[in-house]
Amino acid sequence: MTSPLVELNNISRHFPGKRTSLFGPPETVRAVDGLSLRINRGEVLSLVGESGSGKSTVGKALMRLTDLTAGEIVFDGQEISRFDRARMRPLRRRIQMVFQDPYASLNPKASVADTLAAPLEIHEPDLTRAQRQDRVADILETVGLSPDFAARYPHEFSGGQRQRIGLARALITKPDLLVADEPISALDVSVQAQVINLLLELQQRLGLTILFISHDLSVVSHISDRIAVMYLGRVVEVAPAEALFRAPRHPYTEALLSAIPEPDMRARRKRMILKGDIPSPVNPPSGCSFRTRCPYAIAECANARPLLEPAGPGHLKACIRDDLDLSPALTSDT
């Protein structure tokens, strides 16, 4: 097996929170707390978790848009977590990002051509103006937009079209890794499928590796090679997509799977409703952080943080209970 494209080794990102008293030290918000994850070359790895689980922070850390508190990021053999901006710059063309909100991620005062030419001006300054225009036209066509759109401004486009422009901006430097931070959750349902399909098609055609961040398991089910489930700043289960849906090994994954809407009205089943909200990342529960909401929790769960352990081929889970018979996803097509 070749080496993975990205290795996140035990990364943590803590933010200073509110001060507890006037002169006291600020609280620590543990957005990401000792997370490890590998992204293999050419795969689509989905990172799934509810809001507040720290999944976007993982994406930001990988993009080096936020500094790590601890841990290391190995990208293609290089440890980049301490790189300064100048050393990071040549790598940036290889790691690109698509943002969640297509209305916020495009500069309203810049034409499509300006937006798309910017990455080339930064990374390939030797190109002539004509060459840049050609590349912009090419990439617009690649994402399914007319090259005539280059002279227009973001407000003239729909959400789906804007997201395609955002995708074009990320792909114009021919990156190896694309971090897609909830790229479709701000779009109309009718447009979501189009953008997902485009993303998949381009992934195949360009040999991209994608870290797909989402809060919705049903969205990632048919696009992912592997899925990592995140809870309170840690990965609780990683598995090939098919295995995760067929045989989840962590109670939290089971709960997420049972929350997937079922289009067939007759297929009745019991839903597993989690009690309460995700605990505060300021003081997470001792031991297993999920135990406060876990229906299978036992006394030992409070003792130590469970480690990710093998639970099948390519399947890792962080749960001390091996005796559980967790129900799979109901949907038959996965």
């Binding site: 848009l65 916020a104 930064i122 901006r169 430097t173």
Partner: peptide, 20 residues
Amino acid sequence: DYTVAAEALGARDRRIILRE
């Protein structure tokens, strides 16, 4: 986000200030 995007592209401060 568009400023963050420029940063993610490796843009220098001057470019971010003047263009974004």
